[in-house]
Amino acid sequence: MEAGPASPAPSPDAASAAIRDEALRLGFDAVGFAPAHLGPEVRQRLDAFLAAGMQGGMGWLADRAEQRAHPRALWPEAVSVIALGMNYGPEEDPLSILGQRDRAAISVYARNKDYHDIVKKRLKALARWMVDRWRGSELKVFVDTAPVAEKPLAQQAGLGWQGKHSNLVSRTHGSWLFLGEIYTTLDLAPSAPEVDHCGRCTRCLSACPTDAFVGPYRLDARRCVSYLTIEHKGPIPEEFRAAMGNRIYGCDDCLAVCPWNKFAQAAREPGLMPREDLNTPRLAALAALDDAAFRALFSGSPVKRIGRDRFVRNVLIAIGNSGDAGLRPVAKQLTADPDPVVAEAAQWAVRRLNTPA
């Protein structure tokens, strides 16, 4: 994005202060600045992850590894990075639903509008403001889907640090920040990088239901409930099914137990507040969704992107884990589903409900 004849180059300090004020006015909750450069440890960590095959079916992580590890490999003209965060903290404990076995647990971030759309809209508004103010400068905006090392950049920009669960942790917002970035040709005053405040705590590692952490800061995505319910396209390996419980889209366990969440506040953006019908939906109702009903229920939601078949597969695993014999007919009705993955999950659920606890 660029515009008009060039304006005089701003001082780095003045430009950073002005951008911070405008970003906060637009509704961002965290703002920081960093040079468009990352140290070799980011690439080394990514290479080790990929060499171990822990990305599973997420082939795009390897396809654009160079651009992910080096901002200027993605855009050589970039001078500075503006890291921005939006708080999506829940009002209540997101793990409380795990005991309601006839209900579905949907990850906090997916209970309303797709955050990509919300964050990108704010990023574009800030980008337009910047281009209008400093004509001749150029920039690019990114939200999650581009090969950007969001968490290392956010740490370098002072928004937080990568915790032992590999997600960003903020001293102000806990584990509940959506991230977005603006790469710009402006020379901006950098923020002080954040340091690791995890100490000896390992609550996030212990909380994982499928033991997806091979060590602190090392997540094997192939074992992660978020990966299994969202990215994985085939049948879910049986070794993980019982541990999934009633989690049908994503998993909040490692995030929710972080002690830094005691400083977090509930989201203030309406589009990030949970919809009442997605807080504790009944498994029986979700299993009955056909493609049209699924699309209607999750219109504008990130859940929509996995499609009805993968979604109902997840619901059937939760039904099998429910211990509720009343849900057996629901599963039995789907044992002949046209999608073989759905049919297999339904057959597994029926067998499991037929087996005495």
Rank of each mutant, 00 (worst) to 15 (best):
residue 80 S to N: 02
residue 101 R to G: 00
residue 280 T to L: 08
residue 53 G to Q: 03
residue 284 A to G: 07
residue 67 Q to D: 07
residue 207 A to E: 00
residue 252 D to L: 05
residue 293 A to E: 12
residue 183 Y to Q: 09
residue 38 L to I: 13
residue 31 V to L: 05
residue 180 G to N: 03
residue 227 Y to A: 14
residue 285 A to T: 13
residue 148 V to T: 07
residue 335 T to Y: 01
residue 131 V to R: 15
residue 203 R to M: 11
residue 38 L to D: 07
residue 102 D to P: 03
residue 4 G to N: 04
residue 345 A to S: 13
residue 102 D to W: 00
residue 23 A to D: 00
residue 135 R to D: 02
residue 62 A to K: 15
residue 320 G to Q: 04
residue 110 A to I: 09
residue 274 P to K: 07
residue 256 A to M: 06
residue 32 G to S: 05
residue 321 N to V: 06
residue 11 S to K: 09
residue 352 R to D: 06
residue 124 K to A: 07
residue 63 D to V: 05
residue 228 L to F: 14
residue 55 Q to N: 14
residue 36 A to H: 14
residue 101 R to W: 03
residue 175 S to N: 03
residue 131 V to M: 13
residue 228 L to Y: 06
residue 162 Q to Y: 01
residue 337 D to E: 05
residue 8 P to H: 04
residue 261 N to A: 12
residue 100 Q to D: 08
residue 149 A to S: 13
residue 242 A to G: 10
residue 70 H to Q: 09
residue 106 I to A: 03
residue 37 H to I: 12
residue 262 K to A: 15
residue 215 G to D: 09
residue 287 A to S: 10
residue 339 D to W: 04
residue 253 D to G: 05
residue 235 P to T: 11
residue 1 M to N: 11
residue 72 R to H: 01
residue 28 F to N: 06
residue 261 N to M: 14
residue 114 D to E: 06
residue 340 P to R: 10
residue 38 L to A: 12
residue 82 I to A: 01
residue 133 R to H: 12
residue 125 A to D: 06
residue 119 V to M: 06
residue 39 G to V: 12
residue 15 A to R: 05
residue 5 P to D: 15
residue 177 L to A: 01
residue 132 D to F: 01
residue 213 F to H: 05
residue 62 A to R: 15
residue 69 A to G: 01
residue 316 L to Q: 06
residue 345 A to I: 12
residue 152 P to R: 01
residue 324 D to G: 07
residue 168 L to W: 01
residue 331 A to Y: 03
residue 318 A to E: 04
residue 38 L to V: 13
residue 13 D to C: 07
residue 250 G to Y: 01
residue 211 D to Q: 13
residue 13 D to L: 13
residue 180 G to P: 06
residue 251 C to S: 08
residue 305 R to H: 11
residue 234 G to V: 07
residue 307 G to V: 11
residue 31 V to T: 10
residue 162 Q to A: 09
residue 52 A to L: 13
residue 292 A to T: 10
residue 309 D to M: 05
residue 142 F to C: 15
residue 38 L to S: 09
residue 146 A to H: 04
residue 109 Y to P: 03
residue 113 K to W: 13
residue 312 V to G: 05
residue 129 W to I: 09
residue 99 G to P: 00
residue 254 C to K: 06
residue 12 P to I: 08
residue 356 P to D: 05
residue 276 E to I: 04
residue 302 P to L: 09
residue 214 V to R: 12
residue 219 L to N: 03
residue 3 A to F: 14
residue 323 G to R: 08
residue 244 M to H: 06
residue 23 A to V: 06
residue 72 R to A: 04
residue 194 E to Y: 03
residue 6 A to C: 11
residue 143 V to S: 02
residue 280 T to W: 11
residue 29 D to T: 15
residue 257 V to T: 11
residue 26 L to Y: 10
residue 15 A to D: 05
residue 77 E to R: 02
residue 280 T to S: 11
residue 285 A to W: 07
residue 105 A to V: 00
residue 80 S to F: 02
residue 180 G to R: 02
residue 36 A to R: 11
residue 279 N to Y: 13
residue 81 V to W: 04
residue 334 L to R: 02
residue 312 V to L: 02
residue 54 M to C: 03
residue 77 E to A: 05
